[in-house]
Design a protein around this nucleic acid. Sequence first.
DNA 1: ACATTTTGTCAAGTATTTTTGACATGAATC
DNA 2: GATTCATGTCAAAAATACTTGACAAAATGT
Lengths: 79, 79
Amino acid sequence: MKNKLKVYRAMFDFTQEDLAKKIGVSRQTINYIEKGKYAPSVLLALKLAYVFNCKVEDLFILENEDLKQEDSLIFQGGE
Amino acid sequence: MKNKLKVYRAMFDFTQEDLAKKIGVSRQTINYIEKGKYAPSVLLALKLAYVFNCKVEDLFILENEDLKQEDSLIFQGGE
DNA sequence: ACATTTTGTCAAGTATTTTTGACATGAATC
DNA sequence: GATTCATGTCAAAAATACTTGACAAAATGT
């Protein structure tokens, strides 16, 4: 899963700390999410999308890898 | 945060177990999310939206409460 | 009424996210 | 070259998500 947090943050000219305060988390959390160290909760994701006035899908992008792995029979679609 | 998982599941005529298998989690996880016992990761949310061919925002709905609480100065908007 | 499937729930354990506090780096300013 | 600000990172703890296995309640089908 990729994310465009850094880009959106730049568009709005927010520092990581600005953003952290806006959505009520620590600066490190923003940093870690931005660097892809972990995937936030959907609650956080929705708040981020709210702040940036965009969709969750604009910020967080599923990759094929995310769909393959699983036990899932449905996924591991095409190349 | 509300969610419309049950509704979408009904629309697609999936059981909790069907859905669980599709996205590669346990049935209980689906059940707990559906009952609002906890908020999934954005990764799970994206997969759910993918399966239902909809937006994360269609499945998970922020409520005013979610925005108030915070230390955030930006939120606690209107009534 | 009985069997089956689906859902709700519990408990205990593992994994992941989030927090706090701290420190190092690079860029910009003075 | 010292100061400040934004970012990257580490480590340890707290909180939350997720797993497995199991069982009861509710709904569905015969």
